[in-house]
Design a protein around this nucleic acid. Structure first.
Ligand SMILES: [Zn+2]
Ligand SMILES: [Zn+2]
Lengths: 684, 684
DNA sequence: TAATGGGTGCACT
DNA sequence: AAGTGCACCCATT
């Protein structure tokens, strides 16, 4: 398996062709860092995906398109790459909206800038006597220790002379240092009205942005959430901080606010930023009232149990590691699931900081994009999100399933969730002013961080015994109601997008992307060609549960320690679904019980209506659907649409990405049934 | 209770008389920050301590001496002070070695520098139009965010102009800024051969050192570990970092390496630095093999349980909070117990950093002191520490009791403790090279972070039903074997203390302090006048268990969540013992069982030999005892001894503290039986 | 800096 | 005993 075919005497030199198409490699191995031979991987992966059966037409198309998606820059053959070299002859087939089983259509906008490589994509040169310590640049401003001086035990790597990145052999115009750009802010006032896709004069920021757009697009297309997802066309970061900035550009539009969990010179681990106290409505906690036989064991012990934090349980992880060999950062999504609703929150402090950083580096392009995002998010308010009914009679063992009314708040009534108790720890009930709605978001917690959702409307489908979790796709990004009050001013002052916003003001922005998600249904899961209905997908997936092993590790597994005999019945169950849109269905659950136990999986729970669970369309979105479809379908292949003109109202900067915000913001492309409770059900 | 008698219109001006005597207030209230009227507190406290019975002669002496200990500086009447103003007429009675029930003798050394106040100890002046935000100084070098600029949400308090501390009304020569001193290092080359106690020319560093010595002395004398222990004569810190530095001067000699758990502008919370992987031998884990009825519930669940870290479980906490009113830092030991052996480890990286900082601020006095400490610690090697036998047949419910062979290591055999498993988590057995000994340190863990020690030799004493924990006093500080190899050179070069060290080389340095611990036996607990034997103390205390309520909260209580029905039977059980020396007795325990459960307290376990548990003398210490006693008794009232001359070999700095290192290093003065497992049994 | 996982100090929020 | 973001570490293979 570990066929590490890297040659120490060879070094990759990147050709100065910055444009690339993202490739995501659904590795099955835990170690995605020593990739195997690409051909072998192709076979293995595809066989796994296809469960050994002959390829269908869709599968073939998908496979071919994946090969087309091969990025040709910065990634040598067989290293971190799944598919072969990029060639753009079949680009027009990539953009496939798999829901309708229509032929793949061209990806919007991104591929306008894809250029035919004019040189060999990689050049191997003998490794010179280069110092082994090629360090990534880190803008380390922190100097906590009073001094270093003579203390031999303090070895400060930063004090070493920087011998990295400036190597003459490295040719890449993807290099960008936000620090440098900040200091040279005036030089980058973005005159760029040069919109020709083959422009070689792309600035580093523009390259960053392009790659971030591509990553978003591919992430929306991504399906194997249980696997490592490699963000392969990654720009060359000059500074370590730029990695986060770039990832923020990708994940903020997806409703994910990332935070660094751990970092050092060569590695950054990102996670979801912990929920705030006001985000109880986003947290997924649900429990049933029927106690199991172990109830008596939890009485006095449960209150002594130390709950670290119910806000910080999301299993989502991104790992960025600096590869000294390629002198690039490798970015892998280790865990693509979430324990909460995904929400684009322009009011977040971190988001404002992010915007501020964008202003400092003068990344007007991205600023515009997020201004639009903010505006569209605001226009969708108030988002009335349905809750998903809990059909607990048959899914007692379903642990985590995350639908709560995004705008609901439990202030009006006592919520017995761990979050509520955590929030009220200081004995002060939150005032109802913080809550906007008093909807019946019936979420019950057992106080152990393990959540359940009771499904009420039992329909006519079956659930296999090992299906333990309801999985909710994040197709409907909820929007923070506490919108930044300064937003409109900022937005208007930035360039007057009101024409554009009026055009889109009635469109559910976040649902727009769903329609254009380009996920082929090569598993034939999509039995329902209606965009809003995927009732049979999940069952198809269940039948394919062994096709793809589950890489979800037990990062946040099982804090359910307080006397609950939680037997894990599902191992490596991994299912992927096609783009099932919607999800915020009715959540009329029982919320009276604080504690709940997992019933043994062997209990006879066979009937689950996953249409109810996952596929109920967004109420408001449904209203917007017709407009949305019209808008989306009106996008030409090159997909500049009205947005192009609108965007030009901002300024003259090039806008390779801003025209496809719809796709960026909402893709409901993956679904993952995973093992443990904390590993949430949300994907983008 | 919250009689906050501070007058907003009055401000305390400190007289420039830096010398003070520590006062420790065993508050019963959870809130030690708004102290009550000192007179009321006197009554309350003393009544509680005495359980309402008439005072004995010893009690009266203690009370009187406590009043004498009133520090007169920096603390207004009734604020953070328990006793009345200092007057030194009865100083000669303070130093009482309560073990022998001899009359209190004078505290050594410190009081040589106590001076008669020549002015009113506090001056109240009308508060001027001073801004309310008197901020503590923080040497904040960290600027993680790329910038602040216009972002309104980033409110950086450090950017505000500093209006604090420099107020003209504040007169205090206790002010010290290590930052400042570092920059003006040459100016403080410590000529001070001025050893007259009334010297007004004491430098800030000298004041810091003196107060740290006093704090150590009083901590050794401290008994109410379950209560908040206020370190009241606290120097005035210019910089936030100086708080830690000062506390390090106090707690390193006590075998405690502190680390910041949390800090902000106005508060610092310190804890014990987490044990390193090589410190398994210091960690206390013990469990019994007999399972309870809940065993079946833990089978599959236990292995999924997420053990955060078995190295980071010590409940010891110090809280330092800046009082804007007094513009001083209030330092309170919130939890004085430990879950591990206390050990002075000169090889610690943090300790070396600490020493380095001392050099940078040119605190030669403290450097000398710690050089001596290091040398003495090294001279005591190898310390053969006995383990305490576990008498588990009757103390199944005893949760945490910490005795492991300090120098033992479990490399030779499989240790089923959580630590061992934690260390070997990645399936690689640690090589035996890391271990020094292969002693039979039989430590068993149940994997839940809750530890038990099995007592084997059941003797003849009884344990009350609610006595749940064995408590081990830390009287025997173990010494890190991996001694700094550079120590001797440093030590010799600093001033050639070999004469002195040869004098003390055979003395168990850390036990020396025990003898001079000045704890009156006002609870009549000391039925055994033999210094090494306190067999009946604990029982006396148990009978007095209600005299002092237990402030130990359930902070670290019960991570034992995996199905164990751990019923807490003991609430507010708080016992204090007199200075019971020794502890590291034989620990021949069962270590075969990984999981263990708490038996219900109602099980009939009545017999415990606490002599075996707590009072077994240190083997080596016993050998040293005669020398130690001779040495200690040879100390004159002013207590300069040989150390004075020796110290002068260093240089001409004044040596208010270095002469009494024996007392500083080892005081076995407190014992605390507390509720939960994580709260360890070690005190100094 | 080989790759990769994790602990934890500690200050920001 | 604020929670957690972040980075300085260490450990294993
Ligand atoms: Zn998340
Ligand atoms: Zn400790």
């Amino acid at each position: 398996m570990n066929n590490n075919n890297s040659n120490d005497n060879q070094r990759v030199v990147h050709v100065p062709v910055p444009i690339a198409v993202p490739v995501f490699m659904p590795f099955n191995s835990q170690n995605g860092h020593n990739p195997n031979d690409p051909n072998i991987m192709q076979m293995n992966q595809f066989n796994k995906l296809n469960n050994g059966t002959p390829l269908t037409k869709q599968q073939m198309d998908y496979f071919i398109n994946q090969q087309q998606l091969m990025q040709f820059q910065n990634t040598p053959m067989g290293q971190n790459n799944f598919f072969s070299l990029f060639n753009n002859q079949n680009l027009s087939n990539i953009n496939d909206t798999s829901r309708t089983n229509t032929p793949m259509t061209q990806l919007p906008l991104q591929f306008n800038n894809v250029q035919t490589p004019t040189a060999t994509s990689k050049i191997t040169t003998p490794k010179q006597g280069k110092p082994k310590k090629a360090k990534p640049q880190t803008s380390n401003k922190k100097k906590t220790k009073p001094s270093v001086t003579t203390l031999t035990i303090t070895k400060d790597p930063l004090s070493e002379p920087d011998t990295s990145k400036k190597d003459a052999n490295i040719i890449s115009n993807n290099l960008v240092s936000m620090e440098r750009l900040k200091s040279a802010k005036d030089a980058t006032t973005t005159p760029a009205s040069d919109m020709t896709p083959t422009s070689q004069a792309k600035t580093p920021i523009e390259n960053h942005n392009l790659l971030s757009e591509l990553a978003i697009e591919s992430l929306q297309r991504q399906r194997n959430q249980g696997k490592f997802i490699h963000l392969d066309p990654v720009p060359q970061f000059e500074d370590q901080k730029d990695v986060k900035l770039w990832l923020q550009k990708i994940f903020y539009p997806l409703g994910i606010e990332i935070a660094i969990e751990r970092s050092d010179k060569f590695k950054i681990t990102f996670k979801c930023k912990a929920l705030k106290r006001g985000d109880e409505d986003l947290h997924v906690e649900h429990h049933h009232e029927n106690k199991s036989v172990t109830d008596d064991l939890k009485g006095e012990d449960s209150k002594k149990r130390r709950v670290k934090s119910p806000f910080n349980t999301c299993p989502f992880r991104i790992r960025a590691s600096y590869k000294s060999k390629s002198e690039k950062w490798q970015i892998v999504i280790i865990n693509n699931s979430h324990s909460h609703q995904l929400k684009f929150s322009p009011t977040s402090v971190n988001y404002k900081q992010f915007k501020q950083t964008l202003r400092e580096i003068n990344d007007i392009e991205t600023i515009k994009k997020f201004d639009e995002l903010e505006y569209k998010a605001k226009m969708n308010l108030p988002m009335d999100v349905d809750t998903i009914p809990c059909d607990c009679g048959l899914t007692e063992e379903v642990q985590s399933f995350g639908v709560v009314l995004p705008t609901s708040f439990t202030s009006g009534k006592q919520q017995n969730s761990a979050i509520a108790r955590f929030t009220q720890k200081n004995s002060v009930k939150r005032s109802s002013a913080a809550g906007k709605h008093s909807d019946e978001s019936d979420v019950v917690s057992n106080g152990s961080g393990v959540t359940k959702v009771k499904k009420q409307n039992n329909k006519n489908n079956k659930i296999k015994e090992n299906l333990r979790k309801h999985v909710n796709m994040n197709s409907a990004l909820s929007v923070d109601e506490n919108h930044d009050t300064n937003f409109e001013q900022c937005f208007n002052t930035e360039g007057g997008l009101m024409d554009f916003s009026e055009q889109l003001s009635k469109v559910d922005f976040f649902l727009a992307g769903q329609k254009s998600a380009n996920i082929p249904d090569f598993l034939n899961l999509d039995n329902n060609k209606n965009i809003m209905s995927h009732s049979n997908q999940l069952h198809d997936q269940i039948n394919n549960e062994n096709t793809i092993s589950n890489n979800i590790n037990s990062i946040s597994s099982s804090t359910n320690n307080n006397g609950i005999n939680h037997i894990n019945h599902i191992n490596n169950m991994n299912t992927i679904t096609n783009s099932s849109n919607n999800n915020n269905s009715n959540n009329n659950n029982n919320n009276n019980e604080e504690e709940n136990n997992f019933l043994d999986l062997n209990m006879g729970v066979d009937e689950v209506d996953f249409t109810e669970l996952f596929l109920k369309p967004h109420k408001k979105s449904l209203n917007m659907q017709s407009q949305l479809e019209i808008l989306d379908q009106s996008l030409p292949a090159t997909d500049h649409l009205d947005l192009e003109n609108i965007e030009m109202q901002y300024n003259n900067s090039d806008h390779t990405s801003s025209g496809k915000n719809e796709e960026l913001s909402k893709g409901l492309d993956g679904m993952h049934l995973f093992e443990d409770s904390k590993n949430g059900p949300y994907f983008f």
